[in-house]
Nucleic acid binder design. Structure first.
Lengths: 127, 127
DNA sequence: CAGAATCCTGTGAGATACTG
DNA sequence: CAGTATCTCACAGGATTCTG
């Protein structure tokens, strides 16, 4: 019921159409949070060139804890982005790789990371 | 001083060359964290089509708090990614836009977000 | 309108130790 | 080797109130 309040002219009119381009209750928010989690991008990029073993990942991505590596991998695997393959050898061996879907995603992460690599120094120097 | 330890043969040899592709103390880590912060990607995408006002951003990006909008914008502005322009009008008006550098970055975020939009439903349905 | 200042909380993430 | 199991906590992030 648009009661309307007498305003002295200035208010630009409630053209309330700022259309909410990014809804809160949206599946994209969940996936975005997985991909952009602290270690998500680095793990996906590390998996870019074929299968990688667990220990290899740990050393490649400096600073990641075992807990976070496991957790990040599990989430991405559950999302159908990462594939996990166990070799029943001794000592045990587990390879991680990207699924088809994951390869598409990782491909779109590369230009992003390239930009960051090119600009990071200049940005950090601002401080 | 490679003392070397007598190992019973099995250890695959310290081909310690998993080359640490992602060093911990690297400027890229900082910038990556800014861009992939909870609201970073959404803010950058929202700024993709020219200048946007503060309030407009708030409504466009549903669920963002004032604190986080301010904080995210300040960080990105400080990084030289976002430009802030104040109009000394009354009521006050502030426009945010992307810098040249920011436009390059945002352009690389679009394909990523596209992938997420296309796959989010299928991924979330797995649960 | 566009924030700044405070206070407060959940949980993402680290450290350590143990195991199939 | 490739993890899991706990314990712990800092800090990103939220809610609320105030202001130029």
């Amino acid at each position: 019921m648009d009661v309307g309040i007498a305003v002295p002219g200035s208010v630009p009119a409630p053209t309330s159409d700022d259309p909410v381009r990014f809804p809160a209750a949206c599946p994209t928010r969940v996936v975005l949070s997985h991909v952009t989690s602290r270690w998500g991008v680095l793990v996906l990029l590390a998996l870019g060139d074929g299968p990688v073993r667990w220990g290899e990942l740990r050393r490649t991505i400096e600073g990641i804890s075992e807990k976070m590596l496991a957790s990040t991998l599990r989430t991405l695997e559950h999302d159908g982005i990462v594939h996990r393959e166990v070799f029943p050898s001794v000592p045990p061996r587990v390879d991680y790789s990207l699924t088809e879907s994951g390869r598409e995603l990782a491909a779109r992460l590369v230009p992003l990371m390239d930009w960051i690599v090119e600009n990071a120094d200049a940005i950090v120097d601002r401080h």
